[in-house]
Design a protein around this nucleic acid. Structure first.
Lengths: 246, 246
DNA sequence: CGACAGATGCTTGTATACAAGTACTTCGCG
DNA sequence: CGCGAAGTACTTGTATACAAGCATCTGTCG
């Protein structure tokens, strides 16, 4: 009697009210898009008031973001958006390169035609001239995720995505000043053609070149404007009134 | 005025009282060591009472564990230790293999002698005959982490470790019935010798063989006793009184 | 004018009360 | 005896109150 019953996930979401999941996703998006700048002070009370909820869901969201490394919480002092840590950027670069290259190695002989079509459409959209920055990033994310799905490791992308928050923010810093999504789009094309053409070595080198280009772009922007990068990970940022001051 | 000041992490820990960090680590350890069996029901109230704290820190710990995939929380229904998900086990296997092999590729010419000595000592301890299961797992963890540190990617191990909870539990299931840490210890030796000997290809093949052996061990135990593995990820386990019943 | 001490306002951490909903139990009825 | 429906005990989600501590501002004294 009473076997396990299936649980409908939608019921937890369609409450209508903004739940913790919404708050977490919203805050995460704001951090990744630099709408919440690195080093900015986050007050649980202020966020709760501005979102129209109590401290509890805000606090729980901040705890999750802290575990991802996107937020730092100092007890009795304050919570802050993490400064972009070059070490974490390099770690994320290493991780994604290792995983994405290994995924290429495990591509099956016959590719999922639906995913291939999806990628082809994705690349077409990347070619559009009137492409906004966030739109490009979304397409970029979907493209790399799609390649992982071709290798049968679509779920592993979640782990990579969660670990590359610092890298994503660094990329946005770079592309803010130095628009060049067209170059990356062309590299995406090269990778895709090699994959569908079955040329594994070429796909590997193209992917490696692409990811390294992204990383070099970040290093360049770091030398250009280092104030948003973290010097020491355990350094408390300046307080709010001083932030207003600047 | 008022530049950023350094924050002493120890202050947040030496409160004496069991804080959320302690509770989180304790629960996580209990889940990984199967002291909390897959499928077991977790009540925030019961855990709070048994740990002598309120629901708040317990709840926040469960939220973190849920993000790691070790716990499933169903609103208004209950929280449960996740059943070992074969898909997540395979994902973790793919991830760690990709990362650890890539780390071998990035080994420097001159290895950190301190880490090498540490690894040598680690291997000596693995040889001891009176080795407990959890002791072996701790040494295994430290060994692989040490290899990553040699490649300069020690921090990446945190990401891998966080993602391989399901794989670790599957390993413990396997080694509970089928003691063979000696085989794995010998493989560790082989990897280590190839690394210090500078034989990169041999190190790669030895590592791959080792990780695949671990994975095959898991597949074997899954065929042997599948009741602790998840059939469908969104299936609610049986309720508490029924758990007492069985 | 300078420096030290207390007051104040902010922060996060924890405990508790309430809200909403599920699942099982039990009682009443046919 | 079978079955249905109200009731009860439990769950998690949220809001709120209190506790403890750091940083700054301010008042006072030398």
């Amino acid at each position: 009697m009473c076997r396990g019953s299936t649980y409908d996930v939608r019921m937890a979401q369609t409450n209508g009210r903004t739940s913790r999941r919404d708050i977490y996703l919203k805050l995460r998006q704001m951090v990744l898009t630099l709408e919440l700048a690195p080093g900015a002070a986050l007050s649980e009370n202020e966020l709760a008031a501005s979102l129209g909820v109590s401290r509890t869901p805000v606090r729980e969201s901040l705890i999750l973001l802290a575990q991802e490394g996107l937020v730092q919480v100092f007890p009795k002092i304050g919570s802050f958006v993490s400064r972009v840590d070059p070490a974490q950027v390099a770690d994320a670069q290493f991780l994604r390169e290792a995983v994405e290259l290994a995924s290429l190695d495990s591509l099956p002989d016959r590719l999922d035609t639906a995913v291939v079509a999806e990628l082809r459409d994705n690349l077409a959209r990347q070619r559009r001239a009137d492409l906004g920055l966030e739109e490009f990033f979304a397409l970029d994310e979907a493209f790399h995720h799609g390649l992982m799905r071709l290798g049968g490791h679509g779920d592993v992308w979640k782990t990579v995505a969660a670990a590359k928050g610092h890298l994503d923010r660094a990329r946005r810093l770079g592309l803010h000043e130095n628009v060049s999504p067209a170059v990356f789009a062309a590299q995406h094309h090269e990778i895709f053609d090699a994959v569908v053409g079955g040329d594994l070595p070429l796909a590997r080198t193209a992917m490696r070149t692409h990811l390294r280009a992204v990383f070099d772009d970040i290093e360049r922007i770091r030398a250009h404007s280092p104030e948003l990068f973290a010097a020491d990970a355990s350094t408390v940022p300046v307080r709010r009134n001083v932030v207003v001051w600047e």
